[in-house]
């Protein structure tokens, strides 16, 4: 099938099998290998990208379903020498060991901060009508779709907390 895919602000014409997942289209057809294939079943979160600003598992999406959508990958956030606040914070706080899950963690964290700033509730939010606390429990719950086999979770939490103000999340008082 002939499709046009918009990724990181650039339009790409592709001729692909309808079975191609969004993840495979990014990695194998557009050479954007930052998004990683972990479980390929929507359980690990290594393939997290943004579609129209929302985080999704790109392994559970068909590329042909995303014509007309705006896809953002880790390559669209920053690059060596010009890292985004979250990328820099992950380096600063050792938010990884092997690094395989990191692009997914960062894409997920970026969305999470936005969702937080907009007052979305989570499983651990007690009061659905008040703004949620920016607590570690909330961060962990909201990042639960991204697994790290190296268990770099403490560093990941610190990095997210540190980068929150620079990523434009307004509500940043720690409430632990």
């Amino acid at each position: 099938m002939q499709i046009t895919l918009s990724v990181n602000g650039e339009s790409h014409a592709l001729d692909i099998d309808p079975r191609t997942t969004l993840l495979d289209a990014l990695r194998d057809h557009l050479d954007l290998t930052g998004s990683k294939k972990g479980c390929d079943h929507g359980q690990c979160g290594a393939c997290t990208v943004h579609v129209n600003g929302r985080r999704i598992n790109s392994c559970l999406a068909l590329a042909v379903m995303h014509e007309g959508d705006e896809v953002t990958t880790i390559e669209g956030l920053g690059e060596p020498g010009n890292l985004s606040p979250l990328q820099a914070a992950f380096v600063r706080h050792d938010g990884f060991q092997c690094g395989y899950c990191t692009p997914g963690q960062i894409m997920s964290a970026k969305s999470m901060l936005e969702e937080f700033g907009n007052g979305w509730p989570s499983n651990v939010t007690d009061d659905l009508t008040a703004a949620p606390d920016f607590s570690d429990a909330e961060i962990k719950e909201r990042m639960s779709g991204n697994l790290c086999r190296c268990s770099a979770y403490p560093g990941i939490c610190r990095a997210i907390r540190d980068a929150a103000p620079d990523e434009g999340m307004h509500k940043t008082e720690a409430a632990e």
């Binding site: 979160g45 598992n57 997920s108 779709g145």
Partner: peptide, 16 residues
């Protein structure tokens, strides 16, 4: 109902 929806799977799954 909001609370039920907010607890399905994980955030990436809920976005799709």
């Amino acid at each position: 109902l909001s609370s039920l929806a907010a607890r399905i799977g994980d955030p990436a799954v809920r976005a799709r």
